[in-house]
Design a protein around this nucleic acid. Structure first.
Lengths: 216, 216
DNA sequence: TCCGTTGGTTATAGGTTCTAACCAAAGCGA
DNA sequence: TCGCTTTGGTTAGAACCTATAACCAACGGA
């Protein structure tokens, strides 16, 4: 609880290191992250940094953890709003630091396995999404039935399989547009990705309005 | 046309180098690609490789180009089939070598700009998708109207804005599921991503069948 | 005050990309 | 066949990187 002077100093230096690490990642990507460069920036030379992080991988793992935490905080702060608002919150969070988004959801490094707690934080995000999807079920689909048999991952959450399907779909569709947008694959096409996100995320409403009305 | 002996040798060595490079990328990711290791594998030591590729970045750029070409070939070989078949062709192509997929559509490196011809190959893929989407238009949406004003990127293709929208949506949805699947973000959830892809890619059919029928 | 823990240093090993300098061999025209 | 030019290879080395080892100063609690 009450930190000693040394613990406080240590925590502050670690935060300082992580701050400069985020800077480097934001400007040059995680592959260009250099412990030597960070050490110089925080005012110590080279190997001193290994007193605070055992290795480059451990520092990156810590950053990934903090990244998930930051995303979960942003999403939970918007809990209770509708899917469109949630999509914009997540998109804004990602666009504030694209390389941070890609650190979580970009190219995986083949050997690496995320620590267990990051998947727990991912679950927090998923729960907010599921909550927002509750009650927006459309007609049942074959995948809903399939999901009914594979819902252990959300383990005990009282949502229909159709709702889980909607949440999963929200996640994959948003990620689809967002990651292509942030990676620059829409460069040259002049359209506004936000508008595409809007229709991807609340899919049936627009298309079906005026056809089936509210007869569901 | 007729290559000289030297040109043939050079082309063969370059292909050999690229082959070993793909091996390394498939097993350890592009960030672990080592020119030294490749050189040893092809039997020459270190800097000799620079006679064939000016830099590591140039080799990677060449691999990216070949990757796009390979994807476009796979997609064009399936041209004329329906969207579900196209989705499976692309998914199978990606799953055959996930790191190759991520080389094209994964985390972008901040400084890097793809050469112009790769975007031209991307366009080839897009044209096949658009062709497959033709005639599957649903009711018009606001984004269709927006796309009508921003269709320069496909420049002269005689497709409705609604069709372009469907093709764009096909691309982003497939990429959304596929990249999360390949990155391992579905690990632990037991569902079959192929089923999710199927419903994402032919979105309205399943949901609407039995409601609006074929009244469109 | 003493002494262990902690946080810093420099030196060094082994890895990387890439350049420089040098050399051998292959191809080609006279 | 001779000789020159281009090409493909070598080794050496500069400038980075991660990470470890060895050493030392300074801080904190008994």
């Amino acid at each position: 609880m009450a930190q000693s002077s040394r613990e406080r100093y240590r925590a502050q230096v670690r935060a300082d290191i992580k701050g400069h690490a985020w800077e480097q990642i934001a400007t040059a990507g995680v592959s260009a992250l250099s412990l030597n460069a960070i050490a110089k920036q925080v005012g110590m030379s080279g190997p001193a940094l290994y007193r605070y992080f055992a290795s480059r991988d451990e520092l990156i793992t810590e950053l990934i953890r903090d990244g998930y935490r930051s995303l979960a905080d942003a999403v939970q702060a918007a809990a209770g709003t509708d899917l469109l608002e949630l999509a914009h919150v997540i998109r804004d969070w990602a666009r504030a630091d694209p390389q941070r988004y890609f650190l979580l959801y970009g190219t995986p490094v083949p050997g690496y396995h995320a620590p267990a707690d990051t998947t727990a934080i991912s679950r927090e995000v998923m729960v907010v999404l599921i909550e927002a999807c509750a009650g927006t079920d459309g007609p049942p689909t074959p995948f809903d039935a399939h999901l009914e048999a594979h819902r252990d991952w959300i383990d005990g959450h009282p949502a229909t399989a159709a709702t889980l399907h909607r949440a999963l779909s929200f996640w994959t569709r948003l990620h689809g547009v967002l990651s292509l947008e942030l990676a620059g694959h829409f460069a040259g096409m002049g359209f506004d990705p936000a508008l595409l996100v809007a229709e991807e995320v609340i899919p049936d409403q627009h298309r079906r309005s005026g056809i089936t009305g509210s007869s569901l």
